[in-house]
Design a protein around this nucleic acid. Structure first.
Length: 307
DNA sequence: CACTTGACCTGTCCGC
DNA sequence: TGCGGACAGGTCAAGT
Protein backbone atom coordinates (compact mmCIF):
# COMPACT_ATOMS: atom_id res chain seq x y z
CA UNK A 1 0.00 0.00 0.00
CA UNK A 2 1.93 2.90 1.15
CA UNK A 3 4.64 4.20 -1.09
CA UNK A 4 7.04 6.99 -0.27
CA UNK A 5 4.45 9.83 -0.13
CA UNK A 6 2.11 7.90 2.17
CA UNK A 7 4.91 6.89 4.53
CA UNK A 8 6.17 10.48 4.57
CA UNK A 9 2.70 11.77 5.50
CA UNK A 10 2.49 9.26 8.34
CA UNK A 11 5.93 10.40 9.46
CA UNK A 12 4.91 14.06 9.50
CA UNK A 13 1.78 13.20 11.47
CA UNK A 14 3.60 11.10 14.04
CA UNK A 15 6.31 13.71 14.42
CA UNK A 16 3.60 16.13 15.51
CA UNK A 17 1.66 13.64 17.64
CA UNK A 18 4.07 11.41 19.56
CA UNK A 19 7.48 13.08 19.92
CA UNK A 20 8.23 13.58 23.62
CA UNK A 21 5.81 10.90 24.76
CA UNK A 22 6.91 8.10 27.06
CA UNK A 23 6.09 4.52 26.09
CA UNK A 24 4.33 2.63 28.84
CA UNK A 25 3.91 -0.66 27.05
CA UNK A 26 3.41 -2.56 23.79
CA UNK A 27 1.41 -5.67 23.04
CA UNK A 28 1.04 -7.88 20.00
CA UNK A 29 -0.90 -11.02 19.30
CA UNK A 30 0.84 -11.73 16.03
CA UNK A 31 4.48 -12.70 16.32
CA UNK A 32 5.06 -12.16 12.62
CA UNK A 33 4.22 -8.49 12.97
CA UNK A 34 6.76 -7.86 15.76
CA UNK A 35 8.95 -10.98 15.90
CA UNK A 36 11.16 -10.00 18.84
CA UNK A 37 8.52 -8.26 20.91
CA UNK A 38 8.75 -10.75 23.74
CA UNK A 39 12.49 -10.32 24.25
CA UNK A 40 12.74 -6.60 23.55
CA UNK A 41 9.69 -4.66 24.69
CA UNK A 42 10.33 -4.65 28.44
CA UNK A 43 14.05 -4.05 28.05
CA UNK A 44 14.31 -1.41 25.36
CA UNK A 45 10.85 0.07 24.82
CA UNK A 46 9.02 0.41 28.11
CA UNK A 47 9.96 3.63 29.89
CA UNK A 48 11.68 5.17 26.87
CA UNK A 49 10.78 8.54 25.38
CA UNK A 50 10.34 9.28 21.67
CA UNK A 51 12.98 11.63 20.31
CA UNK A 52 12.15 11.85 16.60
CA UNK A 53 10.30 10.19 13.74
CA UNK A 54 12.35 9.63 10.58
CA UNK A 55 11.78 7.92 7.25
CA UNK A 56 14.14 6.11 4.90
CA UNK A 57 12.59 4.72 1.71
CA UNK A 58 9.25 3.21 2.83
CA UNK A 59 10.49 2.49 6.35
CA UNK A 60 9.52 4.56 9.39
CA UNK A 61 12.11 5.05 12.12
CA UNK A 62 11.03 6.10 15.59
CA UNK A 63 14.07 7.01 17.67
CA UNK A 64 13.94 6.40 21.42
CA UNK A 65 16.08 7.75 24.23
CA UNK A 66 16.90 4.15 25.17
CA UNK A 67 19.29 4.13 22.22
CA UNK A 68 16.93 1.89 20.23
CA UNK A 69 14.68 2.71 17.27
CA UNK A 70 11.39 1.25 16.19
CA UNK A 71 11.64 0.28 12.51
CA UNK A 72 8.21 -0.10 10.92
CA UNK A 73 7.33 -1.20 7.38
CA UNK A 74 3.67 -0.93 6.40
CA UNK A 75 4.05 -3.08 3.25
CA UNK A 76 0.65 -3.47 1.53
CA UNK A 77 -2.01 -2.79 4.16
CA UNK A 78 -0.24 -1.38 7.21
CA UNK A 79 -1.62 1.60 9.11
CA UNK A 80 -0.22 3.55 12.06
CA UNK A 81 -2.97 5.47 13.79
CA UNK A 82 -2.63 7.58 16.91
CA UNK A 83 -5.60 7.67 19.26
CA UNK A 84 -5.54 10.50 21.82
CA UNK A 85 -6.78 9.96 25.34
CA UNK A 86 -9.95 11.98 24.94
CA UNK A 87 -11.16 9.68 22.16
CA UNK A 88 -13.42 7.16 23.84
CA UNK A 89 -13.79 4.10 21.72
CA UNK A 90 -17.08 3.39 20.05
CA UNK A 91 -18.25 -0.18 20.16
CA UNK A 92 -17.14 -2.27 17.23
CA UNK A 93 -19.25 -4.77 15.43
CA UNK A 94 -17.59 -7.94 16.60
CA UNK A 95 -15.26 -9.50 14.09
CA UNK A 96 -15.81 -6.83 11.49
CA UNK A 97 -12.87 -4.84 10.20
CA UNK A 98 -14.05 -1.32 9.59
CA UNK A 99 -13.17 0.50 6.44
CA UNK A 100 -12.45 4.19 6.28
CA UNK A 101 -16.10 5.10 5.93
CA UNK A 102 -18.51 6.66 3.52
CA UNK A 103 -17.55 10.28 3.96
CA UNK A 104 -15.19 12.21 1.73
CA UNK A 105 -11.47 12.35 2.38
CA UNK A 106 -10.70 14.64 5.25
CA UNK A 107 -14.16 14.48 6.77
CA UNK A 108 -13.93 14.27 10.56
CA UNK A 109 -16.38 11.38 10.68
CA UNK A 110 -14.16 9.47 8.30
CA UNK A 111 -11.36 8.82 10.76
CA UNK A 112 -10.47 5.36 12.02
CA UNK A 113 -9.83 6.98 15.40
CA UNK A 114 -12.60 5.84 17.70
CA UNK A 115 -12.98 2.55 15.83
CA UNK A 116 -9.71 1.09 17.05
CA UNK A 117 -8.58 -1.45 17.98
CA UNK A 118 -10.25 -3.81 15.52
CA UNK A 119 -9.57 -7.27 14.12
CA UNK A 120 -6.67 -5.98 12.00
CA UNK A 121 -4.81 -4.53 14.98
CA UNK A 122 -1.45 -6.31 15.23
CA UNK A 123 0.51 -4.15 17.68
CA UNK A 124 -0.73 -1.68 20.30
CA UNK A 125 1.65 0.90 21.78
CA UNK A 126 0.47 2.67 24.91
CA UNK A 127 1.93 5.95 26.17
CA UNK A 128 2.17 7.08 29.78
CA UNK A 129 -0.61 9.64 29.16
CA UNK A 130 -2.89 6.69 28.16
CA UNK A 131 -3.03 7.69 24.50
CA UNK A 132 -2.27 4.90 22.04
CA UNK A 133 -0.66 4.13 18.71
CA UNK A 134 -2.17 1.24 16.76
CA UNK A 135 -0.33 -0.73 14.09
CA UNK A 136 -3.08 -2.22 11.97
CA UNK A 137 -2.27 -4.55 9.10
CA UNK A 138 -4.94 -6.63 7.40
CA UNK A 139 -2.59 -8.82 5.38
CA UNK A 140 0.14 -9.22 7.99
CA UNK A 141 2.94 -8.40 5.55
CA UNK A 142 4.15 -5.42 7.54
CA UNK A 143 6.57 -5.64 10.43
CA UNK A 144 8.01 -3.90 13.46
CA UNK A 145 11.63 -4.30 14.56
CA UNK A 146 13.54 -2.71 17.41
CA UNK A 147 17.27 -2.50 16.65
CA UNK A 148 19.77 -0.20 18.37
CA UNK A 149 19.60 3.17 16.60
CA UNK A 150 23.20 2.89 15.46
CA UNK A 151 22.51 -0.48 13.81
CA UNK A 152 19.50 0.67 11.75
CA UNK A 153 21.80 1.31 8.83
CA UNK A 154 23.09 -2.28 9.08
CA UNK A 155 19.65 -3.76 8.45
CA UNK A 156 19.83 -5.79 5.21
CA UNK A 157 17.15 -3.71 3.50
CA UNK A 158 18.60 -0.38 4.64
CA UNK A 159 22.03 -1.40 3.38
CA UNK A 160 20.90 -2.07 -0.16
CA UNK A 161 18.15 0.51 -0.71
CA UNK A 162 18.84 3.23 -3.29
CA UNK A 163 18.83 7.04 -3.00
CA UNK A 164 15.86 9.14 -1.91
CA UNK A 165 14.15 10.63 -4.98
CA UNK A 166 13.11 13.80 -3.13
CA UNK A 167 16.50 14.28 -1.49
CA UNK A 168 19.49 16.15 -2.83
CA UNK A 169 21.27 12.84 -3.30
CA UNK A 170 19.54 12.00 -6.56
CA UNK A 171 20.47 14.49 -9.27
CA UNK A 172 19.74 13.51 -12.89
CA UNK A 173 23.20 12.16 -13.43
CA UNK A 174 22.93 9.71 -10.53
CA UNK A 175 19.40 8.68 -11.51
CA UNK A 176 20.41 7.90 -15.08
CA UNK A 177 23.55 6.10 -13.95
CA UNK A 178 21.63 3.86 -11.60
CA UNK A 179 18.73 3.15 -13.92
CA UNK A 180 21.10 2.24 -16.75
CA UNK A 181 22.27 -0.68 -14.61
CA UNK A 182 18.85 -2.14 -15.38
CA UNK A 183 19.15 -1.69 -19.15
CA UNK A 184 17.99 -5.26 -19.77
CA UNK A 185 14.62 -4.95 -18.10
CA UNK A 186 11.48 -2.86 -18.49
CA UNK A 187 11.50 0.70 -17.27
CA UNK A 188 8.69 -0.06 -14.83
CA UNK A 189 10.63 -2.93 -13.24
CA UNK A 190 13.66 -0.63 -13.02
CA UNK A 191 11.93 2.17 -11.11
CA UNK A 192 10.06 -0.29 -8.85
CA UNK A 193 13.41 -1.79 -7.84
CA UNK A 194 14.14 -0.32 -4.40
CA UNK A 195 17.89 -0.83 -4.83
CA UNK A 196 17.82 1.42 -7.90
CA UNK A 197 15.98 4.21 -6.12
CA UNK A 198 13.89 4.33 -2.97
CA UNK A 199 10.20 4.79 -2.57
CA UNK A 200 8.51 4.21 -5.94
CA UNK A 201 5.66 1.69 -5.83
CA UNK A 202 3.00 0.61 -8.26
CA UNK A 203 0.89 3.78 -8.24
CA UNK A 204 3.69 6.31 -8.71
CA UNK A 205 5.47 4.10 -11.21
CA UNK A 206 2.44 4.17 -13.52
CA UNK A 207 1.66 7.82 -12.86
CA UNK A 208 5.20 9.08 -13.46
CA UNK A 209 5.63 6.96 -16.60
CA UNK A 210 2.36 8.29 -18.02
CA UNK A 211 3.42 11.86 -17.28
CA UNK A 212 6.81 11.28 -18.91
CA UNK A 213 5.09 9.67 -21.94
CA UNK A 214 7.04 6.46 -21.54
CA UNK A 215 5.32 3.10 -21.92
CA UNK A 216 5.80 0.95 -18.76
CA UNK A 217 6.87 -2.10 -20.77
CA UNK A 218 9.54 -0.23 -22.74
CA UNK A 219 13.04 -1.57 -22.17
CA UNK A 220 15.39 0.83 -20.39
CA UNK A 221 17.99 0.41 -23.13
CA UNK A 222 15.56 1.86 -25.70
CA UNK A 223 14.99 5.06 -23.73
CA UNK A 224 17.19 8.12 -24.30
CA UNK A 225 18.95 9.96 -21.48
CA UNK A 226 16.70 12.93 -22.23
CA UNK A 227 13.57 10.85 -21.64
CA UNK A 228 15.02 9.40 -18.45
CA UNK A 229 15.64 12.93 -17.22
CA UNK A 230 11.98 13.73 -17.86
CA UNK A 231 11.01 10.54 -16.01
CA UNK A 232 13.09 11.48 -12.99
CA UNK A 233 11.42 14.90 -12.88
CA UNK A 234 7.94 13.35 -13.15
CA UNK A 235 8.68 10.92 -10.31
CA UNK A 236 9.51 13.93 -8.16
CA UNK A 237 6.45 15.87 -9.39
CA UNK A 238 3.89 13.13 -8.75
CA UNK A 239 5.33 12.34 -5.33
CA UNK A 240 5.37 15.99 -4.26
CA UNK A 241 1.80 16.48 -5.48
CA UNK A 242 0.71 13.36 -3.64
CA UNK A 243 2.24 14.56 -0.40
CA UNK A 244 0.31 17.83 -0.85
CA UNK A 245 -2.93 15.90 -1.38
CA UNK A 246 -2.50 13.61 1.61
CA UNK A 247 -1.38 10.55 -0.37
CA UNK A 248 -3.25 7.84 -2.28
CA UNK A 249 -6.02 5.85 -0.66
CA UNK A 250 -6.95 2.92 -2.84
CA UNK A 251 -8.35 0.76 -0.05
CA UNK A 252 -6.61 0.85 3.29
CA UNK A 253 -4.24 3.77 3.50
CA UNK A 254 -4.84 6.34 6.24
CA UNK A 255 -2.55 8.89 7.87
CA UNK A 256 -1.55 9.01 11.54
CA UNK A 257 -4.91 10.57 12.39
CA UNK A 258 -6.79 7.80 10.61
CA UNK A 259 -7.76 9.93 7.59
CA UNK A 260 -7.47 8.90 3.95
CA UNK A 261 -5.69 10.84 1.19
CA UNK A 262 -7.13 12.40 -1.96
CA UNK A 263 -4.33 12.02 -4.52
CA UNK A 264 -6.21 9.39 -6.53
CA UNK A 265 -8.74 11.97 -7.67
CA UNK A 266 -5.77 13.64 -9.40
CA UNK A 267 -4.33 10.40 -10.81
CA UNK A 268 -4.07 10.12 -14.59
CA UNK A 269 -3.98 6.34 -15.05
CA UNK A 270 -4.12 4.49 -11.74
CA UNK A 271 -7.58 2.90 -11.31
CA UNK A 272 -8.67 4.58 -14.58
CA UNK A 273 -8.66 1.50 -16.84
CA UNK A 274 -11.52 1.66 -19.32
CA UNK A 275 -11.60 5.44 -19.12
CA UNK A 276 -10.22 7.90 -21.70
CA UNK A 277 -6.67 9.22 -21.46
CA UNK A 278 -6.73 12.90 -20.46
CA UNK A 279 -4.24 13.73 -23.21
CA UNK A 280 -5.09 11.60 -26.27
CA UNK A 281 -8.58 10.33 -25.44
CA UNK A 282 -7.70 6.72 -26.15
CA UNK A 283 -8.98 4.16 -23.68
CA UNK A 284 -6.68 3.25 -20.81
CA UNK A 285 -6.10 -0.50 -20.63
CA UNK A 286 -4.70 -2.72 -17.91
CA UNK A 287 -1.64 -4.77 -18.73
CA UNK A 288 0.70 -6.85 -16.60
CA UNK A 289 4.21 -5.41 -16.47
CA UNK A 290 6.93 -6.37 -13.98
CA UNK A 291 4.41 -8.77 -12.44
CA UNK A 292 2.09 -5.93 -11.47
CA UNK A 293 -1.25 -4.67 -12.72
CA UNK A 294 -0.40 -1.74 -14.99
CA UNK A 295 -2.95 0.77 -16.25
CA UNK A 296 -1.48 2.52 -19.28
CA UNK A 297 -2.02 3.16 -22.97
CA UNK A 298 -2.19 0.05 -25.15
CA UNK A 299 0.74 0.78 -27.44
CA UNK A 300 3.98 2.69 -27.44
CA UNK A 301 2.73 5.04 -30.20
CA UNK A 302 -0.01 6.24 -27.85
CA UNK A 303 2.84 7.80 -25.93
CA UNK A 304 5.16 8.74 -28.79
CA UNK A 305 2.57 10.89 -30.54
CA UNK A 306 2.95 13.38 -27.80
CA UNK A 307 6.72 13.62 -27.54
C1' DC B 1 25.03 -12.86 -12.82
C1' DA B 2 20.40 -10.49 -14.44
C1' DC B 3 15.91 -11.08 -14.52
C1' DT B 4 11.19 -13.16 -13.58
C1' DT B 5 7.89 -15.62 -10.88
C1' DG B 6 5.71 -17.37 -6.78
C1' DA B 7 4.88 -16.94 -1.93
C1' DC B 8 3.57 -14.52 2.01
C1' DC B 9 -1.83 -13.16 4.14
C1' DT B 10 -6.67 -11.46 4.41
C1' DG B 11 -10.46 -9.46 2.23
C1' DT B 12 -13.26 -8.03 -1.67
C1' DC B 13 -15.18 -8.22 -6.04
C1' DC B 14 -16.85 -10.47 -10.22
C1' DG B 15 -18.73 -14.19 -13.01
C1' DC B 16 -21.18 -18.44 -12.98
C1' DT C 1 -26.91 -16.34 -2.07
C1' DG C 2 -22.98 -19.32 -2.64
C1' DC C 3 -18.57 -20.57 -4.47
C1' DG C 4 -14.21 -20.32 -6.93
C1' DG C 5 -10.83 -17.53 -8.82
C1' DA C 6 -8.48 -13.24 -9.63
C1' DC C 7 -6.70 -9.43 -7.61
C1' DA C 8 -4.82 -5.77 -4.13
C1' DG C 9 -0.37 -0.21 -2.60
C1' DG C 10 5.69 -4.63 -1.20
C1' DT C 11 9.53 -7.44 -0.78
C1' DC C 12 12.09 -11.72 -0.74
C1' DA C 13 13.38 -16.50 -1.96
C1' DA C 14 13.57 -19.59 -5.45
C1' DG C 15 13.32 -20.35 -10.20
C1' DT C 16 15.07 -19.81 -15.29
Amino acid sequence: MPELPEVEIVRIGLQELIVGKEIKGATTDNLKSFPNAKDQVDQFLVGSTILAVRRRAKVLLIDLDSGYSLMIHLRMTGQLVYVPLEQTQTRNIKGKSRGVGRFGAGHPNDSLVGKLPDKSTRVTFEFSDKSKLYFNDQRKFGWVKLPPTELVAEDPFMKKVGPEPLGSDMPNKIFIQRIRKRNGTTVKAAILDQTTLAGVGNIYADESLWSARIHPSEKVKNISDGKLEILRNEIINVMKLSIQKGGSTSRNYVNAKGMKGSYLSFAKVFKREGMPCFTCGNTIVKLRVAGRGTPCMQHLPDYEWYY
